[in-house]
Design a protein around this nucleic acid. Structure first.
Lengths: 206, 206
DNA sequence: ATGAACATACCAACTAGTCGGTATGAGTCA
DNA sequence: TGACTCATACCGACTAGTTGGTATGTTCAT
């Protein structure tokens, strides 16, 4: 049920959850915080969500949908060559890294670190978000691997996951350091790695 | 003032903090949890630490010291060649990734994500831990860069930080997925990246 | 009128932090 | 030696405020 005009309390709460959890973390964000940010009352909160944890699961799914739409319509798909698409994806990710960490970091990565031990539902929703996004890269990586006859001891799946690991780690360094510059540098290393992987014209072993 | 014989309440609390925060996160770990785990009372807690946040800062410093000692005495330093030392460091890190995420993940990386916005003291302590550890790699990376006359558009500092980003991101994926295998794969990509960086204009390494 | 979408008042449990008190040992001096 | 002081380390009942969650409405479109 997509929102036609004015956002429902449910959608406002999901948007508030994304904003506040990215900025403060999950445990530090209270139900009252979320209601205040969304401009709804506690009654509305518990009308739409069984518990705070249930909102977290819904927020992770909402995050998957909104970021999925963002990346699906992003221009990096336009390149004819699959390797170019992968490299353009990394450039696109690097370009998104701007401003405060709360504005460019990943909700799923932030939330799973706090909640993986306490709630398997939240863990699974975050896993689906991260791994699902990685899966959207896999076809291009595999196509490039075949096209350029690269034969390393790595798989498209594992490289796709590696891109996400580098970005998640970059977000942590950015939070620790207080700015986005370091995270962009890490994206630069990631791009260089992919370029180097595809520079070998013949199959090479470890 | 290092304790010679039996651990003081202060040290027991620091060890408890490392254990519980790695397993549950910072906000989800209560002062009572910490006291129970350490086997001390609340009076002892607030005798040694001004606040929960002050313990977090002390725990980050404690983490820097203990991990610093672990890595300082690790065998990867024994290699004569600087590049070998860097590659052996990555192998060493990969070998540490075993069991549950709480056993191999990084306290500083976990804590900074929750606390960077709320407490600049905690943020700075975690930054010092992560960036300080990265700095211990810089000399070897730079020595290898000079020895093998590598002239890419990257610095030893930035590559050292990249290793930490990959590992931090690997921990997140491991938490999301529920096991260490993925994290070890990410370490494999990191090693391959370093090998590829140093393969240009120089004979191959194993 | 009926059910979905809210609002308001409320609560029991929990939270970080406090505070008066005790235990112990080191130093001092007659 | 032993009485006296002092400081540090520790104890645990207590509190003021916060937390997620509930009970009981009201509003409004169908």
């Amino acid at each position: 049920m997509p929102s036609p005009e004015k956002p429902s309390a449910r959608e406002k709460l999901l948007a508030a959850a994304v904003k506040l959890v990215r900025a403060q973390g999950y445990a530090a964000t209270t139900v009252d915080d979320l209601c205040r940010e969304a401009g709804v009352t506690k009654g509305a909160f518990f009308h739409h969500f069984e518990s705070k944890d249930a909102l977290a699961v819904a927020a992770a799914d909402y995050w998957s949908e909104t970021t999925g739409a963002l990346f699906a319509s992003a221009p990096y798909h336009d390149h004819a060559d699959p390797l170019e698409r992968v490299l353009a994806y990394i450039d696109f990710r690097a370009a998104l890294i701007e401003g405060a960490p709360a504005e460019f970091s990943c909700l799923a990565g932030t939330m799973v670190q706090e909640a993986y031990a306490a709630s398997d539902d939240i863990r699974a929703a975050c896993e689906a978000s991260i791994f699902g996004h990685a899966a959207t890269l896999e076809a291009d990586i595999e196509a490039a691997r075949v096209k350029y006859k690269i034969d390393g001891d790595w798989t498209a799946c594992s490289l796709a996951l590696h891109t996400q690991a580098v970005l998640q780690g970059a977000f942590i360094l950015a939070k620790a350091h207080g700015g986005p510059e370091i995270a962009r540098e890490m994206a630069g290393h990631l791009k260089r790695y992919v370029q180097l992987l595809f520079r070998q014209s013949k199959g090479e072993r470890k």
